[in-house]
């Protein structure tokens, strides 16, 4: 594997190399723009000057072999890297043109706008209702109990879970099935009415049927929300996403419309990964 110096990488940056990726950015308004984003864990560099735009109202899939920095990247978008000791960030992350890492940005406020769903469903050990009501409560989004009930119900409906749990709202969230738990976590995130939802391998702990439901859900949500999803499944990326970005060893190798990436990848590493020759 060829190693590149930082200067090298900047010059031969992916965006510059592939003009129509850049053109795509210009056509649609970007929710997130990342500029020269580098992340270090102590001395180890996990991301090396990433330039990537995430389009508003679209589903962007992040793919790449294990350890290439997808999770690291996605955590930068809502500053979930902050509490990791020794984690240092360089470059810029802009949300609607606003620098997420600027001194006057309150991560609490940011995370209310940029929700996140994790690899393993992590419902709180509280009732289903309490799980969904948690976000609106802490953010003071409901003035009355009725309003809160309303938010909970609407969020569960959007997460396509309401019909399954409407009689079990007071049961612990942990008593649901894995797929239901993950949709509960999505409902929990939707309840604070975010602009963006980040999903880090949301289906990797689920069976195929539950996975299909989540994929369907993502499909329904797209348009209303900007969604960034990390996945190890090429099929999933191909099915749910509009745009795809391929990461490799901390570099962003290639990005573009999902169709293009999967049919005519430009970089041989992308091709190799997609066709399963390495990964």
């Amino acid at each position: 594997m060829r190693t590149m110096s930082v200067a090298d990488r900047t010059r031969s940056g992916v965006i510059a190399e592939f003009p129509d990726a850049a053109a795509g950015t210009a056509a649609k308004p970007a929710a997130f723009e990342t500029r020269e984003l580098s992340v270090f864990y102590g001395k180890k560099q996990a991301l090396k000057g990433i330039n990537l735009d995430i389009d508003k109202g679209e589903v962007t899939a992040l793919i790449g072999p294990s350890g290439c920095g997808k999770s690291t990247y996605i955590r930068c978008l809502n500053r979930m890297n902050d509490p990791i000791p020794g984690c240092r960030i360089e470059g810029k992350v802009l949300l609607d043109g606003m620098d997420v890492y600027a001194a006057d940005i309150d991560p609490v406020e940011l995370r209310a706008r940029v929700g996140m769903v994790f690899q393993k469903p992590n419902p709180f050990p509280k009732s289903v209702w309490e799980n969904v009501a948690y976000g609106p409560r802490i953010h003071g989004l409901a003035a009355t109990r009725a309003e809160l009930n309303d938010i909970v119900e609407r969020s569960l409906q959007r997460a396509a879970l309401f019909d399954e749990v409407k009689d079990r709202l007071q049961e612990p969230g942990t008593s649901l099935s894995g797929g239901q738990q993950q949709r509960l976590c999505i409902a929990r995130a939707l309840a604070v009415d975010p602009d963006v939802i980040l999903m880090d391998e949301p289906c990797s702990a689920l069976d195929p049927i539950a996975t299909a439901k989540i994929e369907e859900l993502i499909d329904e949500l797209s348009g209303n929300y900007t969604i960034v999803i990390v996945t190890h499944s090429m099929q999933q990326a191909a099915r749910v996403s509009d745009m795809t970005a391929f990461f490799h060893l901390g570099d962003l190798v290639e990005t573009g419309p999902t169709d293009t990436i999967f049919t005519t990848p430009r970089d041989e590493r992308t091709e190799g990964y997609i066709t399963g020759r390495f990964g």
Binding site: N78, V108, R111, G115, M116, F118, G135, R188
Partner: peptide
């Protein structure tokens, strides 16, 4: 730690 992250990602202090 997943519970902590879940809460934090919702914007809890």
């Amino acid at each position: 730690v997943s519970l902590r992250h879940g809460s934090m990602a919702l914007g809890a202090t």
